[in-house]
Design a protein around this nucleic acid. Sequence first.
DNA 1: ACCCCTATATATAAAGG
DNA 2: TCCTTTATATATAGGGG
Lengths: 188, 188
Amino acid sequence: MGRGKTELKRIENSTNRQVTFAKRKNGLLKKAREISILCDADVSVVMFSEAGNMTEYSSAPLIEQLARYQKESGKTLWDAKHERLSAEIDRVRKENSNLQIELRHLKGEDLKPLSPQELHALENALEDGYAGARAKIKEHHRKLKKNGRLLEEENKRLSATYVSAAAAKQMEHGSNVKVELRNGVGCI
Amino acid sequence: MGRGKTELKRIENSTNRQVTFAKRKNGLLKKAREISILCDADVSVVMFSEAGNMTEYSSAPLIEQLARYQKESGKTLWDAKHERLSAEIDRVRKENSNLQIELRHLKGEDLKPLSPQELHALENALEDGYAGARAKIKEHHRKLKKNGRLLEEENKRLSATYVSAAAAKQMEHGSNVKVELRNGVGCI
DNA sequence: ACCCCTATATATAAAGG
DNA sequence: TCCTTTATATATAGGGG
């Protein structure tokens, strides 16, 4: 619809994608309104842009539409959602636990369950990671310094906000591992 | 659209109304599919004809769309229990994100947003952590060795299960950070 | 109700400001 | 990014099986 025929695939150019979304979003909403009026139908549309911005249209209260949806489709939105949420919580918690174990191992804690082989590997990982990280950090540090006092002032400002953000996060959900490391990073 | 311009009001003739609904319903669904594909957006449409027949389209599971809707709009579609579950997911996700950032910093990645002060602190943290961890690991390693071959055999067995568990976790949700570190730990 | 056809009305891609 | 202006592509009203 327009000067060029468009293939039905994700528009690669980000700007074009956004522009097209804005146009078509309006088009879709208009069509939804029209059909609900012309044909005395109930229509609900919920859209999320790539960036996460929501747009909705519903000719009747959405909750009523959903109640109807459940009755018609036989799908139990509520219960199913509950199960999904619970499953997601399990998944995310497990991931969290793994991350924390990783951090502890890297700090030399909770080594008991590790076999000699794993300990050896951990030593190597630490050694490699340490050397690489240290080099990168120094390099980055050096670059920053080259930019002189002005930038350093700016960084101090940023540092202040970063530290308070870190503090806020601690208050929020003080994981031991994180608190310790945050302190290490944020203070001095 | 078509031979006659149509007023935006309920079509009086029942047959025409139904025919128009059928046509426009398909048009709307097509548009919804297109926008979701072209613009990488998430779109859900639920429609009920005058007669009560339901049609739905959702680029992502409708339940998830609705969860997002709730969060964005602030409107409660279902009970508080679900909201608590959602809040917990958000909380743990945020914590995961922080943990991953920490791991990256410790690996010398994503250093750009850090100020010189923070970089310095990170260096110290790495240095201290590294020395401490290494000492602890060596000590632990030494102790294990003292217990001789029998225990070592046992540890090999444990190691095997640990490694496959780690591999399974990778398959599950391969975060870059984790995968790399797990490899370091699990593989030698 | 469901196709098909065709004239028109709309939607929108591309381009420029 | 948003608006305006085209030229084109699509959607669809009305009509006939």
